[in-house]
Amino acid sequence: MLGIAINIVYLMLSLALLFAFIRLTRGPSLADRVVALELIASVVVGYVGVHAIDTGVSSFLDVAIVISLTAFLAAIGFARFLERGGVKDE
C-alpha cells in the first residue's frame, strides 16, 4: 500500500519538477526564473521527505531543512540583486 503510494508520489513530483523546469528555461524575466527555482527547491524538499519514508532514515529531515534554508536565502539574494540595479526588463 505505502510502496505503491510512494512510487506514485515520485512520479507526480517528477512531473512537477519537469513543469517547473519548463518555466525556468522559458521565463521571460529573471523574477519568473527565481519563482521557478523556489518551486524546484520545494519539490526537492518533497522528494527528500518521501525518500526518508522510503529508506527509513529519519536523518534526511535535516537535509530537507538545509535545502529549504538555502532556497530562502537564494530568493532573498536574487531579490536584492534585482532591486539594486541588476538586470532591467530583459
Partner: peptide, 29 residues
Amino acid sequence: LLAGASFMVLAAIGIVRLPDLPTRMHAST
C-alpha cells in the same frame, strides 16, 4: 503524501499556465 504531491503538481501546472509574475507566484508559493 499523495495530497502533498498533488498540491505540488498543481503549483507546477500553475507556474507554467498562468500569464504573468504575480499570478505565477500566487500559484507556486
